[in-house]
Design a protein around this nucleic acid. Sequence first.
DNA 1: ACCCAGGCGGGCG
DNA 2: CGCCCGCATGGG
Length: 289
Amino acid sequence: MIDVKDFDLGLSFESGQPLTFHADYSRKGHVESLTYSTISGEIRIRSMARGRSTRVYAIGKGYSCAAAEEEVVRRFGLDEDLGRIYARMNTDPFMERAIAEMAGMRLTRNDPWETTLCFIISQFNNIKRIRLIVGNMKGAFGEKVALDDGRPIRLFPRPEALARAGLGKIRACGTGFRDRYIQNAAREWIARPWLAELSKLPYDEAKEALLELDGIGDKVADCILLFGYGKREAFPIDTWIKRIVEHVYFNGRRKRVEQIHRFADRRWPGVQGYAQQYLFWFGRQSKVG
DNA sequence: ACCCAGGCGGGCG
DNA sequence: CGCCCGCATGGG
């Protein structure tokens, strides 16, 4: 059992973050459950709010109890002190409301390759269709494995499988024009093994390395750094965030992306990624901008 | 039948 | 440089 402050499982799971794993979520009263598969098996979480703290039980198939808990802590960033992060984010009334409404929303930590693929697919696309395409790609290229109960599942496609796949077969998953970005990224992932190790580099250098890949621009690179490499100083700027920041902090005046980056870096140093996620989801839910 | 979706790369002025 | 356009595809 893990006892954490400031954790809302459903909000963390359903806040538009790249859940690269297949998962089933449900809520009955104040008890939430989430089941998802991993490379090593399957994790089942039950979470129960008790005042300001939440009790989280994790059971894993193919995991010891301790290993399952460790996986959940890592995956949902439960080792990060949200109270301290909120104190640094809370610079104004709008952010204060976002924090109050979205209390307990965590930034998830995902596999770097899986995150890269998801966000290459995300460009000029919508969340629902991103999930559809990723699902298709698992079916076409993901390794088949059986869980303990014999149920077959498909793992996330590895770069090796996509590097040798034809563009036509990739495109058949619904990727559209992104097919060559995907094939190229898979090949580069193999040719440049250090791409898997970018969390060791400072944010700027890691971003530079990602930007060399075709189909990865400023926004996608920041998403990969934030959700795949745990770089909390990344501040992905998509159409939503741009509108929201312009509306809330610039009186509706249009700003260039570079200016918004500078603004966020100065205002929320070190916690830009959390600020972005809270502005993004709160702003979207309440239709700001 | 439209219109849009968590951008990016290339081409033009 | 800064801006603008086309881009595949499924769902509203």
